[in-house]
Design a protein around this nucleic acid. Structure first.
Lengths: 209, 209
DNA sequence: GTCTATAATCAGATAGAC
DNA sequence: GTCTATCTGATTATAGAC
């Protein structure tokens, strides 16, 4: 028995709205809040439309991961152009309190299809960051004591941990940790030899969105 | 209209079995898999018994957090007696692939009662660890370049990140990071002045369960 | 493309019998 | 302490009308 079920095209405007609404629900209430009913009552549609555009709810969640993943990658690629790429990473994770990353990571532990998508974006971003940081250090003539990957994973781990703990209202040791990282970032910036004229002692901190 | 609903005592054996079964479900399939049906079919009971022991399913999840929290605290308090408490922390987080911490942390972002419980245990453990590490450093005559809280949060952040990424099958940069941390731990151990006779150059690594 | 209609489960929760 | 019975509402998903 072959199913007669139709599936809407990926370019649909309604489909995009569903993904957008789902992304918002994940951020505010978690992946478990993403149901056909909750989604469509935000858009003023009947709930069966969800099953027209997505074979399963999991397919919809994966569309959200792709959307968020593309956005994150774009923001990071832009951020790595900065004068202090490590500081950008440091500040980007810290300012993502209502992030969907925690949601999807937890979900990935139990759903294979989700794990594959999350892995894909994490690897892509990690690889890009490592290359960008390596290039940055070479260009500035900085010879760090530790490999770029260590700086990267270190900064990212710590900033994400601080963000998650802040969400939980746990802050013991945070001020010391922040002071330490900030000092490290400053020390690294001081090491940078100015590439061209050699007469710009203070550099402005890059903006992070 | 006053409810006539009864609630079973906390000392009940069946209640303990329900909490145990729920803890297992959380570890293997996530908090969303904890339903009265799934629980009782493991125990050969009718599903209404769950509502006899727990007012709501959330109450049951909180009982699981307390159980896991007590266990974790006990293991950590024991581990901090070690010769190398930082190494114990490092290895404990790394070997917890199917941890419930990720589940409960994600859930805490959206459920106040869960957030309060998770916060409680995290703060308690953090405080104990900080004190234990501070004492340890003083006793060994180690004067570290950074505050104990920074070492603690740093090691914990990195080990948890590596564990989560390993679960996702992401491993880029892990070997460099592991090598770096291991070297740091070795350097710290070397700094330790032997307290009494001063003739034990190599120390065995502590076992972690 | 969106709707109505419907199937088939599953969920949490409560009352009351034994 | 555990059961039967029941309420009430949720869920994903499919088929077919318009």
């Amino acid at each position: 028995m072959v199913s007669t079920r139709r599936i809407g095209v990926a370019s649909s405007e309604t489909r995009a709205q569903l993904v957008e609404a789902a992304a918002e629900l994940v951020r505010n209430e978690g992946w478990a809040a993403v149901t056909a009913r909750r989604l469509t009552e935000k858009l003023g549609l009947k709930r069966q439309i969800v099953h027209y555009y997505f074979r399963t709810i999991e397919d919809l969640l994966i569309a959200v991961i792709r959307r968020d993943g593309e956005n994150l990658r774009a923001r990071i690629m832009q951020g790595m152009e900065s004068d202090e790429p490590l500081r950008v990473i440091w500040e980007m994770s810290r300012r993502a309190p209502k992030s969907a990353i925690l949601e999807f990571t937890a979900l990935a532990a139990h759903r294979k299809a989700v794990q594959i998508e999350v892995k894909r974006y994490m690897e892509e971003i990690r690889r890009f960051q490592t290359q960008a940081l390596t290039r940055h250090l070479e260009r500035r003539g900085i010879k760090p004591a530790v490999p770029p990957a260590v700086m990267l994973i270190g900064i990212m781990s710590i900033s994400q941990t601080l963000a998650v703990e802040a969400m939980l209202d746990v802050s013991e040791g945070h001020s010391e940790m922040v002071a330490f990282v900030e000092e490290m970032l400053r020390a690294l910036a001081r090491e940078a030899k100015v590439p061209a004229l050699g007469a710009k002692p203070e550099r402005k901190r890059p903006k992070v969105r």
